[in-house]
Each structure stands twice: as C-alpha cells, then as structure tokens.
C-alpha cells in the first residue's frame, strides 16, 4: 500500500516537465526515505537522479520498498490534467499493475483520479560515489538557462572553465565563437541573484550543449542552480526542490581519446 499526498502538487508537475524529454521510461522507487528515481538517457551520456523526501509530503505511507516502472510521457500527460494549485496524491496497491494520481482542488470542490498503467523496466542502478569537486558554481538558474540557450545558437559544445577569475562558458561554431564570463557576485539584494564560485583547483571541461539545454527545463523548480565540476568526472547540475529534495543531472564530459 502506497499513499503519498503532496500539497504543492505543482512541484510534481514541474519535476515531470524537467525530466520527461531526457528519459522516456523510468522506475520510481518508493521507500521510507522518499520518492526517488535514477535513470539514464537513451544514449547513456546523462543521468538524472530525483529525490522527494518523505518529510516533504503531508502524508507519506509506503509499507514496503517498491519500484514502479512508468512511462514519463504518459505520466506527464496525466499530471498536466492537475491544476497548478491542486493537491496531488499518488496511490498504489501491492501487486497492482496501475497507479492512481488523485487531484484535489484547493477548495475541495473538484476531485479527479487518473489511473495509469505501470510497466516492467529493466534498469540497473549506478553507484554514484561521493566526490570532492574541483569547483562548485552556484548561480541563478535563469542565468544558466539563458547562457546555455545563447551559446547553443553558436555551437554544439560548451567549455566550462573555472579559474580564480570566475567561471567561463565558451563555444565555437561555423559562424564564430562566444565566451561568457561570470564573476563571483555576492553584493546583490536577494540571495537568489548571487553567483558564488568555490574553487579548490582550476578545472575546464567540455560538454554537449544539447544536454545542458535539456537540464534547464528544471529551471522552474529552483531560482538557483549548482554546477559541480571535477576533471574527468561527470558534471553535476543540481536544482534543489524547496524543503523536499533535488533533481540532479549528471553529464559525462567530452574527452580526448
């Protein structure tokens, strides 16, 4: 028996919009810790890890650990039927091959349930080791989105370099080249407008912009994004979900063969 009641249902709607273009089918895992997912894109270049902690739900009942295979496009179709202010409850019964999404309007005058078929998905979990990152950049998520979009009109790849001067995003294409440098800036009115650069060692890595642009679909989830870089490790692009958890995207770098 599974019953997860999320008062801020819009969070789940935003999570699906953030990941559905990257991953087609995925197993959602439910345990005492929370509602989570780990899945790779079809080319096994990017990985998404989602955690919605149990404490973030108004009601969280999960009698035993369960893994439920879902088609994210179908799940998104159903969640789009929930209003932005709706309370969403996810319900499942042991051994059932369906899951139910219940949507309640804030005034309780409309209650809908949508039943979705589950699917068997063979997926192996990857162990993500704790790593010391050479550099961690925390910046406004809208700024990061803007940079990825702007650079992708010039080139296909972005070189992200962190030095003591700041963080540089560079690309090159048939029509020319572009460099965008951000310096640390903590003298802003609001903390969500700050750019904070922690650097232990300079680092420079190359990534496909197509994936970076896909990650920025998570921008509505958080005003800030954290980009963690280490040489020869996948970059981590993290969007924190207020008081609940996170969506983390890992992207393998382009490397010299």
């Amino acid at each position: 028996m599974l019953e997860l009641r999320l008062v801020q249902g819009s969070l789940l709607k935003k999570v699906l919009e953030a990941i559905k273009d990257l991953v087609t089918d995925a197993n959602f895992d439910c345990s005492a810790t929370g509602f989570s997912l780990q899945a790779m894109d079809s080319s096994h270049v990017a990985l998404v890890a989602l955690l919605l902690r149990s404490e973030g739900f108004e009601h969280y009942r999960c009698d035993r650990n369960i893994s439920m295979g879902m088609n994210l496009n179908n799940m998104s179709k159903m969640l789009k039927c929930a209003g932005n202010d709706d309370i969403i409850t996810i319900k499942g019964d042991d051994g059932s091959d369906t899951i139910t999404f219940m949507f309640e309007s804030p005034t309780q005058d409309k209650i809908a349930d949508f039943e979705m078929k589950l699917m068997d998905i063979d997926s192996e979990h990857l162990g993500i080791p704790e790593a010391e990152y050479h550099a961690i950049v925390r910046m406004p998520s809208a700024e990061f989105s803007r940079i990825c979009k702007d650079l992708s009109s010039i080139g296909d790849t972005v070189v992200i370099s962190v030095t003591k001067e700041g963080v540089k995003f560079s690309t090159r294409g048939d029509i020319g080249a572009a460099n965008i440098v951000l310096r640390q800036n903590t003298t802003v009115d609001k903390p969500e407008e700050a750019t904070i650069i922690e650097m232990n060692e300079p680092v420079s890595l190359t990534f496909a912009l197509r994936y970076m642009n896909s990650f920025t679909k998570a921008t509505p989830l958080s005003s800030m994004v954290t980009i963690s870089l280490s040489s020869e490790l996948p970059v981590v692009v993290e969007y924190k979900i207020a008081e609940m958890g996170y969506v983390r995207f890992y992207l393998a770098p382009k490397i010299e063969e």
Binding site: M40, S43, H44, V45, A46, L47, E124, H125, L126, G127, I128, P129, T157, T206, A208, E232, L233, P234, Y250, A252, P253, K254, I255, E256, E257
Partner: peptide, 14 residues
Amino acid sequence: LKSQARIARFFRYS
C-alpha cells in the same frame, strides 16, 4: 578531437 564519454565510464553499476 574530443569524443563523448558515457556515464558508465565513471559510475559503476551497483
């Protein structure tokens, strides 16, 4: 020339 690495190069299946 750089080529695209895969995630499994860095993270092992658990």
